[in-house]
Nucleic acid binder design. Sequence first.
DNA 1: TTTAAACTATGATATTTATCATGTTTTCAT
DNA 2: ATGAAAACATGATAAATATCATAGTTTAAA
Lengths: 224, 224
Amino acid sequence: MKCEQCIVRQFNALKSLEKNDLIRISGCKTSKFIQKGEVLFREGESINGVFCIKEGVCKLTKLSANGKDQIVKLVVRGDLLGQRSLVTDEKSNLTAIAVNEMEVCFIPKSEILNDLSKNANFSLDMLQDMAKELRIADNVIVDMAQKSVKQRLADVLVYLNTTFDNDDKGFLGVTLSREDYANLVGTATESAIRILSQFKKEGYISTTGKQIKILDLESLKRIE
Amino acid sequence: MKCEQCIVRQFNALKSLEKNDLIRISGCKTSKFIQKGEVLFREGESINGVFCIKEGVCKLTKLSANGKDQIVKLVVRGDLLGQRSLVTDEKSNLTAIAVNEMEVCFIPKSEILNDLSKNANFSLDMLQDMAKELRIADNVIVDMAQKSVKQRLADVLVYLNTTFDNDDKGFLGVTLSREDYANLVGTATESAIRILSQFKKEGYISTTGKQIKILDLESLKRIE
DNA sequence: TTTAAACTATGATATTTATCATGTTTTCAT
DNA sequence: ATGAAAACATGATAAATATCATAGTTTAAA
């Protein structure tokens, strides 16, 4: 599909590009499907472009000193991935792994870098995106430092519930392993499992295999 | 002092402004001294401009749900404070409090916003700054999630040691209370005190009142 | 379909960290 | 200088979390 016609563009900074620029970019972008578990890029690699997420979800992880992967954030449909690589020449600080089947477009850095200096709206939009990401990151820092594991896990469930449409049976729209949950909140896998079991016992959620259904959102929000 | 002649400018995005823009900005900036403990702005307030830190250090804190202040980052000489307020109209997410005596210049948003859209170098510089901040924030998230309190406190000491010049007697160039240390690493004040006592007992640091001297940097780096 | 591997679950225990209590020291305004 | 408030220090205990062990369950490949 051509960028000019792609609705996903409306969700990110690409919406600020002029039509002729979009056509040019459309001509050099590559589009691909990525399977669950596949790696888009690894920590330490050069990205040299941005991914526009057309469909699916991926996790951005970083390997900590103790050998555990921390999931820093989830990147979803409509997001741009790798903006930082556009403005710095550093290698990626994070690894990106598909959480479910994804469709992404890749736009080479060389092709889009000019737009940053020529199109003020575009670069302002990028600035606003980054400012927003920065605010969210600051909030995550505070939560990590101050909230209990149980609170953080409840937060994640609430976040998933509000960010993704539930499936037709009412399960969360994204299916994560217990290890993913642990890596999102920064705890041991066993601890995440234990707390989810407790939430189940208390009637806040129900589970079928990996699938989780929120039964009592308000109680999850109130956990402390 | 005029912005054109101010050396601090070289450390941040303002270095990308043309001379005539600098002169214009210099004409509308306000300069002031801020005492230790004084508040530059509070969470929830509109900033409507950027602070250029000419001298001193301030802490950016956020009140967590449990009533504790978390220090999200320290802002130092040469840094710009409040970039986010330039590109979004949101209220500040953080409170800024002087850690020691500061000298800052304040540039109103209205005066500098034009430069963002007209001067591509300037906005690219801002983008690079934010990209860097974002990378640092991601790393902090991982550390908060995965490292022990002891490791995080050792990290802070190493950070302070490398970021600020020691004073003439070899003490850290910035003096923080034990509560500040606790709020930086996200722990109880008593825990921070205990760990600092332990570091002292093990010969990694020495203390005189609030002042801390690093005796064995390498050991602090190796703590796990 | 079978079978191994991966994931989930839970108990027992150890470790880390928070909380409460109390006393000491430092700081600072009068 | 002096007294009050703030900051520092440390013990005792409780709570949260990690780790190790073991077993059941699901998933996916052969």
